[in-house]
Amino acid sequence: CHSECLGNCSQPDDPTKCVACRNFYLDGRCVETCPPPYYHFQDWRCVNFSFCQDLHHKCKNSRRQGCHQYVIHNNKCIPECPSGYTMNSSNLLCTPCLGPCPKVCHLLEGEKTIDSVTSAQELRGCTVINGSLIINIRGGNNLAAELEANLGLIEEISGYLKIRRSYALVSLSFFRKLRLIRGETLEIGNYSFYALDNQNLRQLWDWSKHNLTITQGKLFFHYNPKLCLSEIHKMEEVSGTKGRQERNDIALKTNGDQASCENELLKFSYIRTSFDKILLRWEPYWPPDFRDLLGFMLFYKEAPYQNVTEFDGQDACGSNSWTVVDIDPPLRSNDPKSQNHPGWLMRGLKPWTQYAIFVKTLVTFSDERRTYGAKSDIIYVQTDATNPSVPLDPISVSNSSSQIILKWKPPSDPNGNITHYLVFWERQAEDSELFELDYCLKGLKLPSRTWSPPFESEDSQKHNQSEYEDSAGECCSCPKTDSQILKELEESSFRKTFEDYLHNVVFVPRKT
């Protein structure tokens, strides 16, 4: 048989008469490798580009789960590009990614509803959504962080984005990388972005840091009482949809009607710091009717980097990364020049730590249904340095008659930039024990000054392991946590139920 035959053949030295091919099969003959313009397919066939392209389009058009959109890589027609490569849609070739590779997620039936953290986790790592997304989240724990972890990498949506009755959302900033909504599939009414009845939605994105392009379709905003109209108009300008909307697409009466839409800028007039305090004062603000001013709200939190936005980490279910302080308005003076500047002394802060701070007014709604208010920009203030805590785990070892090696770990709280350490030492008198000992005694162990690591005695271990207080009263049991108490109650309830079950099964009433 021919060298490319495997198993047997019907005619000697003829690659077209093989029972099976050793390498690849091409047009009725066995070959060692697939010549151009053919590609290896499933490690035994040679196919042309049209064959591989037909497989790709067949799966793409069917949208069946589990099928493969075949691509070409290293002269092979394979189910998908290997790690580190992405497909070129024009020629199906796998090309190296520039940075992290995109991950295209194809949605069944063309859309997916995100109504819980669990459903959001199914899209973790996706960068391109081939379909439409509907966000409908009523509640949950730590929602802002969970949504950002699972949806934060999405850069492109081919269909539309719909935010509907998501009472738990305060902001859409968890879509931190969303840059493009194509609108290839539109919501009824030709809408590519749809926001309806979101009672706590206050911000779409921080438009000073976020760009969003909507290729096709219109915007729809109705019944978002805490979303200011200025935020919607800003989205029109940034996304390129200005002029597409009709009169009733953006409701003037049901958007922002319960919001404090600040239209003035508060400026800080005085800032002073110490290692654990920050004193702030800002310019006074009074609405047209000074009785509408209820006070100020001061927001602050630790910020290692200057990239904080107002609604980071917030949701309507209680999660809030900001510390909020309510401040009463100052006494009002008739003389504008003698107006008191409101302020606040922030206490209990960490030394040498940068804080993000902003302040906003708290006002009631005027009778004319106009909203007044003022808010400052987010500023960054760093507390002063102070003395560091003591170095940890000092170790001293003498390696000769004239040297001592000293080692330690950095302090747990540096409280500033540590530039150097101060080492103090003092000579001590020799131990009298060394002169009084009889060095001729056998088995004498000389006193040693070398360091030995501390260890816990058996008594201390027994005390720590004991669940009861000892007789001397030195140790006591740790208080039980809520989960331990709940577990004990469940076990007790189970024992009672099981005992009742045994009584009912074992003891049967005697027939009379």
Rank of each mutant, 00 (worst) to 15 (best):
K103G: 15
K103Q: 14
V104L: 07
C105Q: 01
L107S: 08
L107N: 12
E109F: 02
G110K: 06
E111R: 11
T113R: 03
I114R: 00
I114N: 01
D115R: 04
V117G: 13
S119Y: 08
A120I: 06
A120Q: 03
Q121I: 15
Q121F: 09
E122C: 09
G125H: 12
G125Y: 08
T127M: 09
T127E: 00
N130E: 10
N130S: 00
G131Q: 01
S132K: 02
S132N: 13
L133Y: 01
I134M: 10
I134F: 09
N136L: 09
N136F: 10
R138H: 13
G139A: 08
G139E: 15
G140S: 11
G140E: 05
N141I: 06
N141K: 11
N142M: 11
A144W: 01
A144F: 15
L147C: 03
L147S: 02
N150T: 06
L151F: 09
L151V: 14
G152T: 01
I154F: 01
E155H: 15
E155T: 04
E156L: 08
S158T: 08
L161P: 01
K162F: 15
Y167I: 12
Y167S: 02
A168V: 04
L169R: 00
L169A: 14
L169F: 14
S171P: 00
S171V: 02
L172I: 15
S173E: 11
F174S: 08
K177M: 04
K177Y: 11
K177T: 13
L180E: 11
I181T: 01
I181N: 00
I181Q: 00
G183A: 05
G183F: 05
G183S: 03
T185W: 08
T185S: 10
E187H: 09
I188Q: 06
I188C: 04
N190G: 08
N190T: 07
S192K: 01
F193Q: 00
F193N: 01
F193T: 02
F193G: 00
L196G: 06
L196R: 10
D197N: 15
D197I: 01
N198I: 02
N198S: 03
N198W: 00
N198C: 04
Q199T: 07
L201M: 02
Q203A: 07
W205L: 05
D206P: 11
W207M: 05
W207I: 05
S208V: 07
H210Y: 15
H210L: 05
N211D: 11
N211E: 12
L212I: 08
L212S: 04
T213R: 09
T213Y: 07
T215C: 11
Q216M: 13
Q216S: 11
G217C: 09
K218R: 11
L219Q: 02
L219C: 08
F220V: 08
F221I: 15
H222A: 07
N224H: 15
K226P: 02
K226V: 14
L227H: 01
L227A: 03
C228I: 04
L229T: 06
L229F: 15
S230Y: 01
E231T: 12
E231K: 03
I232C: 07
H233R: 05
H233Q: 13
H233D: 13
H233I: 13
M235A: 09
E236F: 13
E236K: 14
E236C: 13
E237F: 05
V238W: 03
V238Q: 11
T241Y: 11
K242N: 12
G243V: 00
G243T: 11
G243P: 01
R244A: 04
E246K: 14
R247T: 11
R247H: 12
R247F: 10
N248W: 13
D249E: 15
A251S: 08
A251W: 15
L252F: 14
K253T: 13
K253R: 07
K253Y: 11
T254S: 07
N255P: 06
G256D: 02
D257Y: 09
Q258G: 04
Q258F: 04
A259Y: 04
A259L: 13
S260P: 09
E264T: 06
L265A: 02
K267M: 06
F268N: 00
S269M: 08
Y270S: 00
S274W: 03
S274Y: 08
D276G: 11
I278H: 00
L279I: 08
L280N: 00
W282L: 04
W282Y: 01
W282M: 02
W282G: 00
E283G: 15
E283I: 03
E283V: 13
P284I: 09
Y285N: 09
W286K: 09
P288V: 11
D289I: 02
D289H: 06
D289S: 05
R291I: 13
R291C: 15
D292C: 13
L293T: 02
L294I: 08
F296T: 00
L298C: 03
F299M: 13
Y300T: 04
K301H: 04
K301D: 12
P304M: 15
Y305E: 04
Q306F: 03
N307H: 14
N307R: 02
F311A: 15
D312P: 12
G313Q: 12
D315P: 05
A316L: 11
C317K: 01
C317D: 15
S319I: 15
S319T: 05
S319L: 11
N320K: 04
S321N: 15
T323A: 12
V324S: 06
D326H: 02
I327K: 02
I327T: 04
I327L: 04
I327C: 03
D328F: 09
P330R: 12
P330M: 05
L331V: 11
L331T: 14
R332Y: 05
S333A: 05
S333R: 13
N334S: 11
N334Y: 07
D335T: 14
D335H: 10
K337R: 06
K337P: 14
K337G: 09
Q339M: 08
Q339R: 09
N340V: 15
N340M: 03
N340W: 12
G343K: 11
G343N: 14
W344Q: 12
L345C: 05
L345K: 05
M346C: 05
G348F: 05
L349P: 01
P351M: 02
P351V: 08
P351D: 02
W352H: 10
Q354G: 14
Q354W: 12
A356S: 08
F358W: 11
V359H: 01
K360W: 15
L362R: 14
L362E: 09
L362C: 01
T364A: 15
D367R: 02
R369S: 08
R369L: 12
R369G: 04
R370N: 15
T371V: 08
T371W: 11
G373D: 08
G373E: 08
K375L: 14
S376R: 00
I379E: 12
I379H: 06
Q382A: 15
T386G: 02
T386V: 12
N387Y: 03
N387D: 02
V390L: 05
V390P: 15
P391Q: 01
L392N: 05
L392T: 03
L392D: 06
D393C: 15
S396Y: 01
V397M: 12
V397K: 15
S398N: 15
S398K: 01
N399A: 11
N399S: 11
N399F: 15
S400W: 12
S400D: 14
S401R: 06
S402H: 11
S402A: 15
I404M: 12
I405R: 11
K407S: 05
K407P: 00
K409M: 07
K409S: 13
P410A: 13
